[in-house]
Design a protein around this nucleic acid. Structure first.
Lengths: 131, 131
DNA sequence: AATCTCCTACTACAGACGTAGTTTAGTGGA
DNA sequence: TCCACTAAACTACGTCTGTAGTAGGAGATT
């Protein structure tokens, strides 16, 4: 059974967003990949990576020189899903009020919907099998 | 200019969800309105209401007996919007990945979106003058 | 007046987060 | 071999949240 990975915070997610595409990275690489403006201290990134490790979201893959490499243990999809589910709980678990707001505020346009319609159909057809 | 009301937490939002429909309520009334299972101590609710007061989300409206009544200072709409905006920031500010996930997980159907889009259009037309 | 009750005010506290300094240890070159 | 780097490990700390206890006031009950 899937290990119950706990919720990721904003910053943790940002770091995962670096790791997911790279497959693996050292703390320094992660830090360097963050936008230059608000780029935290090396040790700050290190701390967060450690916390991600404790949470079971990443693990040490190998050592390069004297630096550890970290790789994701959870998928972007599962992390996103988790966040979204928790967020929806704030609104009684229903997506509708949220989406209504998105539309009302113009954050979601007809174009978006059309695009989603396409990819949504495709992926729904393609995957009868699970997750 | 609009006062910068800070973000509401899950529990704070739950309490606002009691206050919004009622218009005003005492701490006891708020507490009693919460679901009987997980109903926190009286003083816990009191603390949260006080924090809501500090955050500028509610204010004391009047005194009934020896109890204070509290009324919302912010609208549900603005609070929701705030939460949603912050949440979207987690995903780079775009609604699309979120909505894509909603669709994929079956939490939202295309029909839902279309229905919402219609009403959204209507309300957007209706109100050229904002907020 | 002495109590009882209910409410407000104040205080507390642990765990999560963002943030980072300090100490220690491993590695590659001089 | 010894040093300079750089990374890992540990420690720290303020703020926010959920959670609640305690002290003290004001009205209701004898």
């Amino acid at each position: 059974m899937k290990k119950k990975t706990s919720r990721l915070t904003r910053f943790e997610l940002e770091i995962m967003d670096v790791l997911w595409p790279l497959g693996e990275a050292s703390v320094r690489e992660v830090r360097d990949a963050l936008p230059e403006d608000r780029r935290p201290a090396y040790t700050t990134v290190q701390t967060i990576v450690q916390r991600l490790e404790q949470k079971g979201a990443v693990r040490r893959s190998r050592k390069v020189g004297n630096a550890l490499m970290f790789e994701p243990l959870i998928t972007r999809k599962s992390a996103y899903r988790r966040l979204i589910d928790e967020f929806l709980d704030l609104f009684g678990g229903s997506a509708q009020p949220v989406v209504a707001h998105l539309i009302e505020s113009g954050k979601l346009t007809l174009e978006d919907i059309k695009a989603l319609e396409k990819s949504g159909e495709k992926s729904r057809k393609k995957k009868g099998a699970r997750k």
